[in-house]
Structures are given as structure tokens and as C-alpha cells.
Amino acid sequence: MTQEQIDKKWWEIGNYFRRNSLWMLMYCTGCCAIELPPAMTSAYDMERLGMGPMATPRQADVLLVTGYLSLKTLRRLIYTYEQMSEPKYVVGFGSCTINGGIYHDSHAVINKLDQYIPVDVYVAGCMPNTEAVMNGFTDLMGMIKNKTARGWLDYKERNDWYKKNQLDSLGEVLVHDEFHE
């Protein structure tokens, strides 16, 4: 067996455990966040899928963005995303993350989250119901299994494009890293 085949096999084993043990960081910016508590209760029980909340970006695999993003919150979201370990995944909730939702014509709200950070799964609706949220989670797990959840790789490969979009909207975005001060 070659080293490449061994690495591939270890990556497949890692993906099996990753998709069955997803730790989420909830970035609740809008009304879609109201659908997360029911997903945690016994009726839907997202923990049966191996999913649970985490307190910090460095512990999380999945970043849940639930609602509209103002320019101020976008800056913090980028800081948060860049602190997460790889592989990392993003789930956008509601129409606000897709097209700005009811705030689409506001000068202070961004309209397309995937212009600034890669989004692996969108859960559509205003507000998406709990069943749609759970379907989004299982879609992400399927994408991890099939090796199609590659947003974090896209962010690395097209970093100049993402950084240009961030710069155009926010000005300079510096990642604060306490270890490099």
C-alpha cells in the first residue's frame, strides 16, 4: 500500500467519525435562531445524529449562521470562521443568508453570505421550520460522507476572491490571533 492510499484511508475513517460527531457553534443573528431549540428537544433530538453545541470556534466543526448579517456582524463572523479548525463547515439558515431576506435593500445588511465565507448547506425559508433544519443537518452529513462538503477547501483555494469581497464591503479584515501578538 502506498503512502497516498494510507492517507486516503485515514481520511475516510476521519470523515466517518466527523459526520457522526458534528460540534456546532451557533452564530445567532436573526429570527431563524428560534428554530434551533426545538431541534435540540426530544421531538427532533439532534444529538441522536451526533450533533451538539460548542462554546468556542476552536472546538466547533460547523458554524450555523441564523439570520441576517449586518456589516458589523459580518466582520465578527469572518473572525469566528477563521478561528475554526479544518475541516470546517457552514450552514446558512433562512432567506437572509441567501439573498438578504426582508432586509435585502438595506445598506447595512449583506445579501449573499457565500460571497464572504463558503456555505456548504443552505436551509431555505423565512423562518425554516425545525424539520427543514434537521434535513439541512442530514444533508451536511451526506455531503461529508460523499466528500462534497468542500467549502473550507474552496476558501483556501480562492482566498484572494473571498478577501477581495470582504475588503470591498468591510475595509481591512484582520484576524486577531492571540498566539501571534
Rank of each mutant, 00 (worst) to 15 (best):
D168G: 00
N165Y: 07
D160E: 15
Y103R: 00
E172G: 02
F137V: 04
D139V: 11
V65I: 09
G171T: 05
S42G: 15
G125L: 05
L63E: 12
A124G: 09
E35Q: 04
E12G: 04
T29S: 11
Q3H: 05
Y44P: 05
N99L: 02
Y103T: 00
S21G: 06
L63W: 12
S70F: 07
Y116L: 01
M46W: 14
D7E: 12
H180S: 08
G14E: 13
L22I: 05
M40E: 13
Y81T: 03
A33D: 15
E82Q: 13
I13A: 01
Y27E: 06
I144H: 11
E86F: 07
I102G: 14
D45E: 11
S42C: 06
L77K: 03
P57F: 05
Y44N: 12
L113G: 05
E178G: 02
T2G: 14
R19H: 11
P128A: 13
M54N: 08
L71A: 10
M54G: 10
N20E: 07
V90H: 06
Y27A: 07
V175A: 03
G67A: 01
P38N: 04
P118R: 12
I78Q: 07
S169H: 04
K9T: 12
G52Q: 10
D177P: 00
P53R: 13
K156V: 02
C32H: 05
C96M: 10
S169L: 05
V119H: 04
T97L: 01
D168C: 00
L64C: 15
M1F: 10
L153I: 14
Y89C: 01
P38F: 01
G94V: 00
T73E: 15
A39M: 13
Y44F: 15
T41V: 08
E82I: 03
P37H: 12
M127W: 08
M40S: 10
S85R: 13
A60R: 07
V119M: 02
A55Q: 08
V90S: 05
A124Q: 12
T41Q: 15
Y27K: 05
R76E: 15
H180Y: 07
S70P: 00
G136F: 07
R58Y: 05
T2R: 10
C31M: 06
L140T: 02
Y81H: 13
G30H: 11
G67Y: 04
K147Q: 15
L22Y: 11
D7T: 00
T148A: 03
L113T: 02
P87E: 06
Y68P: 10
